[in-house]
Nucleic acid binder design. Structure first.
Length: 443
RNA sequence: CGGGGUAUAGCGCAGCCUGGUAGCGCAUCUGGUUUGGGACCAGAGGGUCGCAAGUUCGAAUCUUGCUGCCCCGACCA
């Protein structure tokens, strides 16, 4: 992408409404625009990251055997009356009346709707286990939205719902999502620690919150330091096999948020030099809640004995839009964002220091074409701004690598290659630059 | 939902106390000089001062009501 043809409204000054670093940086880097309290437009740069996160989530859900569909944002109140949550949910649910005076709502979650879909088609235990998920916008009318996309009212969420014949197989389904989550966050460069969680309005007795440690996290968390170095399951993990060893390993140490922490237990179970008390951001939550919805809503299947039983369900959320905030909170410096290559809006920022200079233009065009051909996404700064402004903007938007081409270096046949995360710079020939970055970015 | 703040050009702000018809920096546009870490000079455009009512000869400024947004707290599958 040529910057001259792109839409990247970078702000030099920080809008005053932004208090935390991820919000500030997202506004300054031209990723989002606030349209209303807790409601944002996703500008091109932010939208690219959002989609990359979505794709990783999709790949890992599919790998774990979940099947994607798409449910609407608007739901009928009828379904919610069936489960009893229409009255129970409170003011966070955005209730709307249509022209026929029917009660409808902007969905804050989809347990009722997925249960309705399930009960409409599935009759036999032979069709189980089943896990259906979608990635859709949700709305929760928070009393006080804040922290930019980390706690908006409208937000993009992946929610998966598992259906099983009994508790034992439901726990296996739970484990599959648990392992998928470990992999999902790891691929984005995050270490998310599963912590014992409250189940809240969704209900149930088995639940974990996946927490990313960050200084600006919303809640205090207590955990064992070994979680930070624990091995994440690889691509070859067999989701049809026994996942208990992995889940047991990842739940073997103490880890809890401030809501449920038992400090005495924390101190008893974790040696002093392994205790971590830090701030954390919740980026996902898994629940097993049994027959809480299937029972009242009549989602039953026939077992092998021919008897109908309500299915055992679980639900599994990933805050997709919130993850942008979490990623930035976990990875930035004074100059701006530092994207992990898996979610970076572009892989490389190519800076032409002197557009109009024949040699420089030719070198940039050549490199740009070769990067694109190799599948490396390049944002090519071909504008005629000053060098300093270009460097500052590139640092701000945080692409993993910067390649700087100017007459001074090209006289000796070299470009400057900068690693955004380490700040390390080296002078390389265009060929060496191409080889190095293609290798680093496509592996 | 309780408490506090704020609203003036795209962004950041001054002016308000003490009423006289709106200003600064950045950004934008034009011309010129510059050009390897957020340049400089000259000029230009851009605002029903959040909305409504009131007081007054006259309101960004005073009064009342409303609304948006932000912060602290409570809340947060």
């Amino acid at each position: 992408m040529r910057l001259s043809k792109y839409f990247l409204p970078i702000l030099k000054e920080t809008p005053k409404e932004a208090e935390i670093v991820s919000h500030r940086l997202m506004l300054r880097a031209g990723m989002i625009r606030q349209q209303s309290a807790g409601i944002y437009s996703w500008l091109p740069m932010g939208h690219r990251v959002l989609r990359k996160i979505e794709r990783i989530v999709e790949e890992e859900q599919n790998r774990a055997g979940a099947v994607q569909l798409l449910m609407p944002t608007i739901q009928s109140a009828e379904l919610w009356r069936e489960s009893g949550r229409y009255d129970a949910y409170g003011k966070e649910m955005l209730r709307i009346t249509d022209r026929h005076e029917r009660d409808i709502l902007f969905g804050p979650t989809n347990e009722e709707m997925i249960t309705d879909i399930f009960r409409g088609y599935v009759r036999s235990y032979k069709d189980l286990p089943l896990n259906l998920y979608h990635i859709q916008w949700k709305f929760r009318d928070e009393v006080r939205p804040r922290f930019g996309v980390m706690r908006g009212r409208e937000f993009l969420m992946k929610d998966a719902y598992s259906f099983d014949l009994d508790k034992e197989s439901a726990v296996e389904s739970y484990n599959r999502m648990f392992v998928a989550y470990l992999r999902t966050y790891k691929r984005m460069g995050l270490t998310a620690i599963p912590m014992k969680a409250e189940t809240g309005p969704i209900g149930g007795d088995l639940s974990h919150e996946f927490i990313v440690l960050a200084d600006t996290g919303e809640s205090e968390v207590y955990c064992h330091a070994d979680y930070l170095t624990k091995q994440t399951p690889g691509e070859d993990v067999n989701f049809d096999g026994d996942l208990n060893p992995i889940v047991n390993d990842w739940t073997s140490h103490y880890a809890a948020t401030e809501d449920v922490v038992d400090k005495a237990a924390f101190e008893a179970k974790v040696p002093e030099d392994k205790r971590i008390v830090a701030r954390g951001i919740e980026v996902g939550q898994t629940f097993y809640f049994g027959t809480k919805y299937s029972e009242p809503m009549g989602a039953k299947v026939a077992g092998s004995d021919g008897k109908e039983v309500p299915v055992h369900m679980g639900s599994y959320g990933v805050g997709v839009s919130r993850l942008l905030g979490a990623l930035i909170e976990a990875s930035h410096d004074d100059a701006g964002i530092i994207w992990h290559k898996s979610v970076a809006p572009f892989h490389v920022g190519l800076i032409n220091l002197k557009p109009g200079d024949e040699t420089t233009d030719a070198a940039c065009e050549d490199l740009y074409a070769k990067f694109e051909a190799a599948g490396v996404e390049v944002l090519y700064d071909d504008t005629d701004n000053r060098a300093g402004a270009k460097f500052a903007s590139m640092d701000l938007i945080g692409l993993p690598y910067q390649v700087v081409a100017g007459p001074r270096g090209l006289k000796d046949g070299v470009l400057e290659v900068k690693n955004r995360a380490t700040g390390e710079k080296e002078m390389l020939t265009p060929e060496a630059t191409l080889n190095k970055l293609v290798a680093a970015l496509t592996s």
